[in-house]
Amino acid sequence: MLWNSVYNEFIKITAKPRSYLGLLAITVLVGVILFALKVDGQSMIAFVTSSFEQTLSFQGTLLNGNLVAFIVLQMLIIHIPLLVALVTGDLVSGEAASGTIRMLLTKPISRTQLLLSKFIAGAVYTLCLIIWLGILAVIVGKVLFGTGDLMVLNSDGLVILQEQDVNWRYAGGFAVAFLALLTVSTLSICLSCFSNNSIGPIVVTMAIIILFTIIGTLDVKLFDAIRPYLFTTHMASWRSFFEEPLPLKEIIKSLIILLVHQVILIGLSLYHFNKKDITT
């Protein structure tokens, strides 16, 4: 029954025009970034390396597909939560608003299974978005700009990663980025369980992300204690895969915090959804 419901959710998601909005938005955004880099990428690189190039010269193709993919990922990963929430925030509340939740819940499928199927479908949709971003950023980036070593600018300096050392880092980076977006997806589905209108959970999800990001950015002592536990703090953990040496401890910590968020949010959703009276 669970997988039948998951299949149903896929059909619904694929039939909704708004589901393609995310893919379209990513395509347009990545297209714009790739175009900008193709036209003026060298000067962007020069801006980064100018401080070093007073003494040193960099030989080789700095602006290559690997760097382009990194720039795309860095620029877009903060916007993709909106695209994720746009679809996942509607999964439960949209059905409540349209009345179909009533129809679904008079069927023998358990509420837990129904909600889990929505979480799974939301996760698959999020995965599709991240894979599409990966295809556009990494594959199209490499087709247009070629391959090469990846030069990454971190707050503690430059890291130059060898070409053969980059693909697994992207795989890891995208996996962690997926997990971060999955937390967003879980949050918006959770909020969706508490609402009977489609827009509310989407707006609240974004508001929470913005609020947590601000708390994470503000240099206020009061926030120091909570900052490491905010999921938004770990949304950029994919970058850790591009550090040398690999900060495995930090990555694992981020993964645990993101997973704990997901477990709590799913648990809360299941508890509320199972107790909820359907009066719409």
Binding site: T55, L56, S57, Q59, G60, D149, M151, I160, E163
Partner: peptide, 9 residues
Amino acid sequence: SKGIAILPK
């Protein structure tokens, strides 16, 4: 060089 090499200016 296929990779990025750093040389003195």
